[in-house]
């Protein structure tokens, strides 16, 4: 009975996007990140480390690309055509920053390749990673065009939090062991807690009731978290985030945006790959 249930629902989850999306979405969590506001301070990344029990791996392992940051701030130097000139001028021009967390794609490339169904699409529109189910095949990571999945090559917990640092671990989520893939969850423990409270009070979840650790920490409020359900399903309450998406004329379910107003800065990273990410970036505008 149980197995049958899993298989039935699994094909529903898997075929979701091909058949026009998972039909019973309860929420559609998404983000908007204004790169004009981003100052590259890395506070979001630090907040993510603290919130999600991320291991500090040290210089050696970092150099081997075994880092565990779910949210990284990528740096780009402007005008790559200028070549070395740009590099020597970078202090006056400065770098552009791009905070990259899991894009929680609607048509996620990581999901269909998992051999054990450890990653799947939730009714909240998130790409879930179930740690105790993961066998560490790393297919998902190799199939992610954004390289936003991180693999536990070692039992980092052994030396990442020497006492008394282990006391700061968040009890609301697991400390992952080696051989397990992990990724940004949009702070699912906060979502879960907020939902529990709302249900206890017999009401709907309110917009802005809670937010992710990165959005909460951002000193310039460049990151906005919210529900995109009204973009996807008619008749749902509009959230701050979906207003923002609408304002930027960015739509879900497209490989290319057709904007009425080309001055609108909103875009999604690598949307041409038809991954349908739920993170919108607002392009940085600079003086030449």
């Amino acid at each position: 009975m149980s197995l049958q249930n899993i298989l039935q629902d699994w094909s529903k989850y898997r075929k979701g996007n091909e058949e026009g999306g998972f039909h019973d979405y309860e929420h559609l969590w998404g983000l908007a990140i204004d790169l004009n506001k981003c100052i590259g301070c890395n506070a979001c990344s630090v907040a993510c480390y603290a919130e999600n029990n991320l291991a500090v791996v040290g210089k050696d392992k970092f150099a081997k690309h075994q880092e565990m940051h779910w949210l990284r701030v990528e740096r780009y130097w402007d005008e790559p055509d200028l070549g070395e000139q740009a590099v020597s001028d970078y202090q006056s021009h400065g770098a552009s920053f791009l905070p990259m967390m899991c894009q929680q794609c609607m048509a996620a490339t990581c999901e269909p390749v998992c051999p054990v169904a450890a990653t799947y699409h939730t009714p909240d529109g998130l790409n879930a990673q179930v740690y105790n189910r993961c066998i560490g095949s790393r297919y998902c990571s190799n199939n992610c065009p954004y390289r936003l999945r991180y693999f536990n090559f070692y039992s980092y917990y052994e030396d990442s939090w020497p006492a008394p640092l282990n006391m700061q671990l968040n009890p609301d989520l697991t400390v992952r062991d080696k051989g397990v893939m992990e990724k940004c969850t949009f702070c699912v423990q906060r979502i879960r807690a907020a939902k529990d409270v709302a249900k206890h009070e017999h009401r709907e979840l309110q917009d802005g009731e809670f937010t992710t650790a990165c959005a909460q920490t951002c000193p310039t409020q460049a990151i906005v978290f919210g529900d995109l359900l009204s973009l996807h399903t008619a008749g749902k309450a509009e959230s701050t985030l979906s207003t923002l998406w609408r304002d930027q004329q960015v739509e879900l379910g497209r490989t290319e945006q057709h904007k009425q107003n080309p001055d609108k800065r909103g875009y999604r990273v690598l949307e041409g790959l038809n991954t349908d990410p739920k993170v919108m970036y607002l392009e940085r505008v600079r003086e030449v």
């Binding site: 149980s2 249930n5 799947y120 939730t122 879930a128 699912v188 879960r192």
Partner: peptide, 22 residues
Amino acid sequence: MGFCRRCHEQNKGPFDCWKCHK
């Protein structure tokens, strides 16, 4: 998990991995 699942099935509890796994 089987014990939890069977009860969730019979009493129509939630059936989403992330409802219980963290």
